[in-house]
Design a protein around this nucleic acid. Structure first.
Lengths: 207, 207, 207, 207
DNA sequence: CGCTAACCGAGACGGTACGTCCAGTCTTGCT
DNA sequence: AGCAAGACTGGACGTACCGTCTCGGTTAGCG
C-alpha cells in the first residue's frame, strides 16, 4: 500500500492518530458512494458527514480517490476466492462467474469509477494497480499454472495475456453498459475462451 | 446523434447559427485535449481559446463531454476500415491490429476519457454508445457474418458477444495501462480468440 | 424631448416606424413596472412581453430608463392641475395636497426610480429634468407669481428656491420612506412653509 | 447595525475572521466609489482590487450596497457636529451649513446612491435608515429641543417634521442636481424655514 | 506533574470554475 | 427600410469546492 494513510509516524511523540476519525471518514465515504458517483462527492461533504475537519482528510490522503480506494479495500475488496476443483476449466468458469457477481454489486460500480479516475490521474492509476489489480491477478496465477501443468491449458500463451482475456470482457461490459453482465454472457465468454486456451489431444485442427 | 448540437431550429427565422463559432469551439476542444485530460479542461478555457462567449457553448452542448464527443467524431472518428480479404481470420486480425493503432494515438486517450465520463454520467454513456460505439459495432458485423457464412467462424456464438471478446482486451489494456498495447499483445489476443471462435473440420476435439 | 424615440426619420423612404410596436413596448414597460422596480426589469423581458425584437427597442431608445420615462410621460404624467382660487395660500395647499396623492400611487414609485436612475446616469438625469421636472416647475410658477403680486407671498425669495422648499419634503419622504406621506404630514409641511413664505401686515400672532 | 458584517460568530471556534481582508475590502470599495457610481462597480472588481476571494465578500455582506454602507460609515460618516451657541437659529444655520458641505463632497454622491439603492431594495433602505439616517436625526433632536425650551422655536410642530423640512431641500438638490448646493441656497432655505418655525414676540416685521 | 509535540474540529481564506442571465450588436428573411 | 426572431461576444452574477491556513482545545509520552 503506497499512497494511502499508513506510514507517517516518525516516533511515538505527540498525540497519536485518531482511529475513530479514520474509521468515520472511511465509513462516510462508503456511505456517500452508495448514493452518488465519486465525482460528485466533495471532500467537504465527506468531512461534514464524518464530523471531521477537512484538514484531517488532507493530512492522511492525497485526494478523495485514494480515500475511496482505501475504504473500498478495507470493506469491500474481500471476494472471489480461487477454487481448486481439480479441473482448470471448472476452476476458471467458477472464478469468473463469482467475479461477475462481484462486479454486479455496488462494488462493481466503485471499481469502474476507479478505472475512470485513472484515466485522468496516472498516479492514482498506479495506486489502484498496486493495491488492487495486481494483487488480484497474482492471486489467480496458481490456478492457471495448475491448468498448464495438468496439460489442460496451452502453455504457449503468456499468463498475463490469459488473465487479460479472462477479465477484459467483464470490465468491458461494466464500463460500456450496453448489455447486462448476466450468467448467459459469462458462459458465452468463458466457453469461447476455454476453447481457445485449451489444449487438444489429436488436434488435427482446422482444414 | 442525439444530445449534441445538431437540431434545434424550428424554421429559418432569426440569425442562423455561426458555423465559424462552432468550428472554433470544436477545434479549441481538440487542441486542449492534446494537453490535458478532459476533466482538467474547463469550459471557460475552451471559450477563451475559441474566442467565443461561454453561453454559446452552453447553448449547443449540455457539457464539455458532449462537446468533446462531437469534436472527436468529426475530426478523429474516421478510421479502421473493415477489410475483406476473403479470409475471416485474416480480416479480423487486420481489423483488430488497425484498431489497436487507433487506440495508441491521442484518440485512444480521448476514447478512454469518454468511457470514464460515462461512469458518472449515464446520459453521456448513452450518447457515446449511440454516436460511436454502436456504430462501430454495427460496422464490423458484416465481416463476422461473412466468416460464419463461409464456415470459418462458429455460428453458435452471439455476434454481440464475439465483438465484446474482440474489442474488450484492447480497451482493458487501454484503461488499466499495465502493459503496452503492442503488436505482440494483439497477436496473442487474436490468436487465442480465433482458436476459440473458429470452426473445425474433423473436430474430434479434446478427449 | 431630447433622448427619447421621437426624431429619427430622414425622409419617407422605406417602411415607416410601427406605431403598434411602439405602443406595445410602452405598455409592456408600464405593466412590468407594476410588478418590479426598474432595475430588475430587463430589456429582454420587455421585448418578450411586447412580442417585439430587442433591436427595435435599442433602435428607438438608448436604454430602459428612457423607455420607462416615455411610457411614464405618456400614460401617467398627467396630473396635478394648478388651482387658482384667489388665495395663494389656498392654492399652494391644494396643489401640494394633490401632488402628494400623485406620489402615493404607483406613479410615485416610478418617479422615485427615475431619481434613483439619475444618480448613476447623469445623461438620464438631464432627460428627466428636461422632460418632466422642469416642466412641472414651470407650471407652478404663475401660481407663485400671483401670490407675490397680490402681496401674499414674500417677494425677496427666489422662486426656484420656493419651489424646492415646497416639493422637497414630499420627495424626501418618498425616497427615505421613514414615515407615510399622509395628509397630516402635508398639512404640517405647508403650514410651516407658508408661515415662512408669507408676508405679514401687523401680525402680533402667537403669544 | 443590522445587515452588515458584524456579528456572525457563535463562539471562538475556527479560524477567526481576517481583519486585514475586511479592511482591504472596505478600502477597495471606497477607492472604487471615487471613480464610478455604485451601480457600475462589480463585486468581482472589488474582490480583485482587495486581493480577496469573491466568496469572502459574499460571506460577510449580502451585497455591494451593504458593503459600501459599512465602508461609508467607517470612513466617511463622521461629521457635522451639533453646535450649541445659545441661539437655536444660529445652531440650525451652522448645522445645515456644515451638512451641506458634507453633501458637496464625494460622501454626498455616495449618500445619494444609497438613497437610489433603497428605491429598488427595501431591505437596504431599512439598513440605511437604521445605520445612518435615524442616527443622524436622533443626534439633532437635542438642538431642536433646546430651541423649543428657550422659546425660540414653535412647540406645536412635530420634531420629525421639522427635521424633514430642514434636511429635505438639501437632499432634493443633491438628487435632482438642477442647481448647485451653495451657501446662497442654504441661506435661503434656512431663512425661510426659520421664519416659519420661529416664535414671535411682537413682531411688527416687514412693511 | 507539567511540558511539549502532534493531533483534532471548526471554519475563514484566496482562488477557480460553474451554469445563468443580461447588455448590446449582428444577421437572417419577411413585410 | 423597418421588423421579429434569435444567435453572437462579453462579462457579472452568486454558489460550490479546492487545498491551505489559523484558531482553541485535546491527548499522548517524556522529562
Amino acid at each position: 500500500m503506497t499512497r494511502d494513510g499508513a506510514e507517517h509516524r516518525p516516533c511515538g511523540r505527540g498525540r497519536p492518530r485518531s482511529e475513530q476519525s479514520r474509521d468515520a471518514i472511511l465509513q462516510a465515504t462508503l456511505d456517500l458512494l452508495e448514493e452518488a458517483p465519486l465525482r460528485e462527492i466533495s471532500i467537504q461533504t465527506i468531512a461534514r458527514r464524518a464530523k471531521v475537519g477537512k484538514a484531517t482528510i488532507y493530512k492522511w490522503w492525497p485526494g478523495k480517490a485514494y480515500l475511496a480506494l482505501e475504504a473500498f479495500l478495507e470493506n469491500t475488496g474481500r471476494h472471489a476466492p480461487i477454487p481448486d476443483t481439480g479441473s482448470a476449466r471448472q476452476d476458471i468458469m467458477t472464478h469468473i462467474s463469482m467475479l461477475s457477481n462481484f462486479y454486479l454489486t455496488r462494488a462493481g460500480r466503485i471499481f469502474a469509477q476507479f478505472l475512470a479516475e485513472g484515466q485522468s490521474d496516472p498516479e492514482f492509476r498506479k495506486s489502484f494497480w498496486d493495491c488492487f489489480l495486481s494483487v488480484r491477478r497474482r492471486t489467480v496465477l496458481p490456478m492457471l499454472r495448475r491448468g498448464v501443468e495438468r496439460g489442460e491449458l496451452r502453455s504457449d500463451v503468456d499468463t498475463d495475456l490469459v488473465i487479460d482475456l479472462l477479465y477484459a470482457p467483464m470490465v468491458y461490459r461494466l464500463m460500456i453498459g450496453h448489455a447486462p453482465l448476466d450468467e448467459r454472457a459469462i458462459q458465452g465468454y468463458v466457453t469461447v475462451l476455454l476453447e481457445g486456451l485449451g489444449t487438444r489431444v489429436v488436434d488435427s485442427r482446422r482444414k
